[in-house]
Amino acid sequence: MNSLRAFEAAARHSSFAKAASELNVSHSVVSQHVKKLELWFGTELFMRLGNRVELSGDGRALLPQVASGLQTLRDGCNSLLRKTQSGTLVVSAEPALASLWLRKRATEFCKLFPRIEIDLRPAWTPDRLGDENADMLIHFETRMPSSGVERQGLFPIDGYPACTPKFRDKLLSDDLRIDWDSVPLVHDNGREIWHKWYAAYQPESSGWQQGRVYSDLSLAIDAAVDGEGIVLADDILCQREIESGALVRLDPQAVRCVWYQIALPKGGLKAPVSETLKQWLLDQALPHRNN
């Protein structure tokens, strides 16, 4: 079963490395699982092309059946889990993620699993795991505990300059160019991310030192929507503002801001329902990890 899961993930990503990241194992483990399948079937399932892999003819024939079978198993297990699993999960999450992405999905999860309750606790510093503390952490990878936990990537945040349409029209000069030395910026939790963007795309400018700093991304987004300046927005946490047109992309160039991770206690200390929530959230975040 593990070999089939590894094959399906590698086929979907066209990459052993991305499959390994999704399954939370090493690249070599995925490669070994695929080799076992190839020996068992007596045929190559992938063509190795440097760092990339492509399905062979036999691999393409096998994939739909394996994907369908795995989905049937997941659906069957989830159907039973919805009836049997119960309890309260304490989830400690970074405040902006908790407000802008996780809250809505926690509500959806509880509708699917009505016997499970989620106690969502926003926190700038991740809570301790286990005992009477949090059952799950969802936070910046840089703030996660370094030991005693099992961590898995949720999704990355790639920020690009965005502002209101009215503010954009005021900024653009006659030649449709922006003066990045003097534009008013909106920062969240320090100036580091704007500094990273300027270092990548405007290295000669010190414009990143300007603008007001807010303690939380939610406040920074609200400030940008109110016309205070340009914020580094993204397509996940700022989805509502971008899709509604309240904020528009001012520049196509983006910078990696952060990775969010999920962490559970290592070993047998985790609550059984934690694994169910973790896998459900990873499935919800899968399109963002594949972009």
Rank of each mutant, 00 (worst) to 15 (best):
L247I: 05
V25T: 06
I138V: 13
L63W: 03
G57W: 00
R249C: 15
D169T: 14
L286H: 10
L55H: 07
H195W: 06
P265R: 01
R177C: 13
V258W: 02
E132F: 01
V91T: 09
A233N: 06
L112K: 14
L237D: 03
R212Y: 03
H195Q: 15
Q85M: 12
L55D: 02
K278T: 05
R177S: 14
L37A: 12
G130V: 12
T72Y: 06
R289T: 04
L154R: 05
K278E: 09
V25L: 01
N51W: 01
M47F: 06
S56M: 06
H288I: 00
A106L: 06
E54D: 09
S215N: 11
L49K: 13
D75Q: 14
D58M: 03
M136N: 02
N290K: 12
K83I: 00
A61Q: 11
I236H: 09
H13N: 01
D216E: 15
D131G: 04
L37T: 05
V273C: 14
R121G: 05
P122C: 06
W208Y: 15
V53A: 00
L172Q: 02
P114G: 08
V25R: 03
A200F: 01
R82W: 01
R52S: 12
V255R: 01
A123N: 08
N290E: 13
E192F: 12
L112G: 09
G50F: 01
E108Y: 05
W40G: 03
H27P: 00
L89M: 09
L81Q: 10
R151T: 14
E94L: 09
G153L: 00
S206K: 15
L63T: 02
G159L: 06
L282R: 10
R12M: 08
S26L: 02
R12F: 06
L81W: 09
M1P: 10
A224V: 07
G130N: 10
C163K: 10
S147L: 08
K278D: 00
V149G: 13
Q65A: 15
V273S: 07
F113Y: 15
E22T: 14
D283P: 00
R128E: 08
D235M: 08
M47D: 07
L62E: 14
L171M: 15
F140S: 11
L247D: 00
W259R: 11
I116N: 01
L129V: 01
N51T: 13
A271I: 05
D234M: 13
A199H: 12
D135C: 08
N51S: 14
D127Y: 09
G153C: 07
A6T: 00
E275S: 02
Q71N: 14
W259V: 01
R151M: 11
Q284N: 07
K111I: 02
L39C: 05
L62F: 09
S205C: 11
R168H: 11
P161G: 09
D181K: 10
D234F: 14
K35F: 08
I193Q: 12
R82C: 13
K170T: 11
R12V: 02
I236E: 09
T72Q: 15
R121W: 07
I178S: 04
L172M: 10
E150M: 12
L70V: 06
Q202H: 10
L120A: 00
N291S: 12
I118Q: 03
K196C: 02
S28Y: 08
I262E: 06
S28L: 04
D234E: 14
D216H: 09
I242F: 12
L89V: 03
F41Q: 04
